[in-house]
Computed example of a mutant assay.
Amino acid sequence: MISQQFLQRTILYPSSLLYTPDRFATFLVQQFGRQLRILHGFGARKVAVSNIGLLGCLPEITSVFGRNASGCADIVNNNVELYNQKLKVLIDNLNTNLPGASFIILNQTSISTGGPPTGLTIFDRPCCKVLPNTTAKGQCIRGQIPCNNRNEFVFFDNFHPTEAANLAIASR
């Protein structure tokens, strides 16, 4: 059953009324493929491309769609996986068909599922108090003091990783 929050969120994004998740992933990858071919045409040969990580684990997303046993929103992560699979096919195709192309994928999903980074223990909420229902929804409230144990938090606000999380991701 689709939640009322999901329906309300869908209305904010007309793309979800125009495309199925699979068709939208196809559309995005086609557009990205055009851009990568243009880069190749300008002489780029070695290009690192990042796939999309587990967006369904962001505090903002789980506050709207709910969370599974692992703390994430399956519906969002499943849609992200559709895109990531199509991106892999695109990159393989470009490497096969463009002379000298060496495109690689930085697998954000693999990086973020490699086990909990040392010291990070709080995955399900942000370090700061966030703004509800505004144009800056999910971002820290200006002038508020964030948590004093930032090195334990994965998320600074409802979207962005803390410095400690970024360091853990970069080291992987």
Rank of each mutant, 00 (worst) to 15 (best):
I38W: 12
I38P: 01
L39Y: 03
G41A: 02
A44F: 03
K46N: 14
A48V: 13
N51R: 02
L55S: 10
G56R: 01
G56N: 08
G56E: 06
C57P: 05
P59C: 10
F65Q: 06
S70K: 13
G71S: 02
A73F: 00
D74C: 01
V76Y: 07
N77M: 10
N77V: 08
N78T: 01
N79H: 02
N79L: 05
V80G: 11
L82Y: 02
Y83G: 05
Y83F: 13
Y83S: 01
Y83D: 00
Y83W: 10
Q85R: 15
K86I: 06
K86R: 14
L87P: 01
L87E: 07
K88S: 15
K88W: 13
V89W: 13
V89S: 03
L90M: 00
I91Q: 02
N93G: 12
N93H: 12
L94D: 12
T96M: 08
N97P: 09
L98V: 11
L98F: 09
P99G: 05
G100V: 00
F103P: 09
F103R: 05
F103G: 09
L106T: 09
L106W: 06
L106M: 11
L106R: 09
N107A: 03
N107W: 05
Q108H: 06
I111K: 08
I111F: 09
T113Q: 13
L120I: 15
L120A: 04
T121M: 10
F123D: 11
R125K: 14
P126F: 00
P126M: 02
C127S: 02
C127D: 10
K129R: 14
K129F: 10
K129G: 11
T135G: 13
R142E: 14
G143F: 08
C147L: 06
N149L: 07
N149Y: 13
N149F: 07
F153T: 07
F153I: 00
F153E: 07
N158K: 01
F159L: 04
P161H: 10
P161G: 06
